Amino acid sequence: MKRREFIHAAALGSLALSIPQVRAFGSTWSNNFELPKRVLGRTGERVSSIAFGGIMLNDHSPEFAKEIVSKAIELGVTYFDVAPSYGNAEAKLGPALKPYRKNCFLACKTHERGSEGAEKTLNQSLTYLETDYFDLFQLHAITTRDDVEKAFAPGGAMEVIEKAKRDGKIRYVGFSAHSVEAALLAMEKYDFDTAMFPLNFACWNAGDFGPQIYEKALSRNMGVIALKAMALTANKPGQEKYDKNVWYQPVTDEETMKLALKFTLSKEIATAIPPGKSTLFLKAIEFMKDYKPITPLESEQLMALAAQTPPLFANK
């Protein structure tokens, strides 16, 4: 099987990449290929248009982590994302990224809403990732108004985050959200540097999920970090997971996958984080070889698909 054919098959099935296949990926491309960079909002930082989603390292070997991080660096990836809730991904990413740390933008998160838990996870993450600071630290997966209220209440996670920023452990502050209501409330309470949320063709067109957060973030010159660009829909009851680190069903047709990513990247976003499977991460990078903004005809194709697809998220 040819190299390109293997990546194609692996992306659409359950195959896992081996270390030799990771090393060989992109070896036939132009020597000067490098992912394009975009500005992360008001931070002024230039980051890779495709980000490395650290969750893909969960339960992989340290050797595999080292190889795919090295390959990502080789191809121009500078934005690395991880969180304590991603299994053992932090412990795998830290040693693999250490040789390149000074030239990377490292983003981490806390799912804790109280100060005690947030401080514990922050310090554990710094240790696992073998760094003394994060370029970006985020409130993770705020979903309800209660999530936001607890984080901003006395003794909440934001007290720890603000102190860590003063102490030099954090450069920029952001949030990730899976709720329009929670995201907008968070932005009312704090002048965040970044917003991370699902920016997906089906959610946007069929679920009215995304435009509100996107427009508010841009109006405040926040950096926009896109999740779920290559997602399709939620798992059906009893349906097997696509991958242990991907809890939803991604697009599996390669051309539609490419259009879905183009839809997201055609917005004013800084970077997109592919699903948590190494094959899909590499496939997203491959798509960037000939990336052009989405055309009206391509948008119509996606809108037709969105019309018959239950979105992963909807604004309720």
Rank of each mutant, 00 (worst) to 15 (best):
Ile213Leu: 00
Leu136Asn: 14
Thr78Gly: 11
Leu259Thr: 05
Gly26Ile: 01
Ser49Val: 03
Pro99Val: 00
Ala307Phe: 10
Thr43Lys: 01
Asp208Asn: 15
Gln239Ala: 14
Lys277Arg: 12
Ala306Cys: 08
Gly207Leu: 09
Pro250Gln: 05
Ala307Glu: 15
Lys262Ser: 10
Met288Asn: 14
Lys98Glu: 09
Thr309Gln: 08
Lys37Ile: 05
Glu119Thr: 06
Thr264Gln: 12
Glu300Val: 13
Pro250Gly: 07
Met196Cys: 11
Gln301Met: 08
Asp132Glu: 15
Ala10Glu: 06
Phe209His: 15
Pro311Arg: 00
Ser61Glu: 02
Arg145Ser: 10
Asp243Trp: 15
Ala118Lys: 07
Leu106Val: 09
Lys316His: 12
Ala186Tyr: 01
Glu119Tyr: 01
Lys169Ser: 07
Phe80Arg: 03
Val39Asn: 06
Asn31Gly: 14
Ala107Glu: 02
Leu259Arg: 10
Asn32Leu: 09
His178Val: 02
Thr127Ser: 14
Asp146Ser: 08
Tyr86Phe: 09
Gly156Ser: 06
Pro237Val: 02
Ile19Ala: 08
Leu185Ile: 03
Phe105Trp: 14
Lys236His: 04
Asp147Cys: 00
Leu40Arg: 13
Lys267Ser: 00
Glu74Lys: 09
Pro211Gly: 06
Asn123Gly: 06
Lys2Pro: 13
Pro84Phe: 04
Ala272Pro: 09
Val224Ala: 05
Leu227Val: 01
